[in-house]
């Protein structure tokens, strides 16, 4: 009888042990998700896709709370949390990819702006050369040359900022330089057209 009782106690004890410790905390999955999130951060997701980044972090926080909730239970089962971690990992992977795409888009946009502005500056320089010389156009052309020099200086700054990776700050500067270069181009064409009109 004593032996039977001892056996029952052992089975009960083992059963409790099995039930309470069979589901292990998914530390490996948590680490893997955090690593993917870190990769998205390194790619610049926080800066370039802020809202999506915050949403992803929100999801991760919810999963972490859910994990702790599960940890507090007597009968643990982390399957649902593991599935959630997989979702967050996918989100982070997508975000990293999207960030890289956004960065490339910005780079292309800035490069296009730089090229277009440089082309306008070059055209303006040619227009200045082909504009009427002598005293009649000299003062106005000198003023325009000064403006072109300022735009070139601004363009040089844009290139430096672009090279240092300050993409968001660079794009507005590049846009402003292009706007000004385009305005000068229009002004030059108007002046030249006016002069040519006079010649006729």
């Amino acid at each position: 009888m004593n032996r039977k009782l001892f056996l029952a106690l052992v089975v009960l004890g083992l059963g409790s042990f099995v039930f309470t410790s069979c589901a292990k905390y998914p530390q490996a999955e948590v680490d893997a998700t955090n690593l993917t999130i870190q990769e998205a951060v390194t790619a610049g997701a926080e800066m370039y896709l802020h809202e999506e980044f915050v949403a992803m972090q929100d999801s991760m926080n919810a999963v972490m709370v859910s994990l702790e909730e599960e940890k507090s239970k007597f009968f643990k089962n982390f399957d649902s949390q593991i599935a959630q971690l997989t979702t967050v990992t996918t989100m982070a992977t997508d975000l990293k990819a999207k960030t890289l795409v956004r960065i490339e888009e910005l780079k292309v946009e800035i490069q296009t702006l730089i090229t277009e502005t440089q082309a306008l500056v070059d055209t303006n320089k040619v227009l200045v050369q082909t504009a009427p010389k002598g005293k009649e156009g000299k003062s106005a052309l000198e003023a325009i040359k000064g403006e072109i020099e300022v735009i070139e200086a601004s363009l040089a700054e844009v290139n430096t900022m672009f090279a240092s990776g300050e993409l968001l700050a660079t794009i507005d500067k590049a846009k402003a330089a292009k706007e000004k270069a385009a305005a000068i181009n229009e002004e030059l064409n108007t002046v030249i057209a006016k002069f040519q009109g006079k010649k006729k």
Binding site: G146, V150, I151, A169, D172, K173, K175, A177, K180
Partner: peptide, 23 residues
């Protein structure tokens, strides 16, 4: 001074673009 004026116009434009992009 003309250069400073052009520079200030550029800065003003940049400021407007920064404002629009909430920087």
């Amino acid at each position: 001074d003309k250069e400073d004026f052009v520079k200030s116009k550029l800065l003003c434009n940049e400021g407007r673009l920064n404002f629009e992009s909430e920087q």
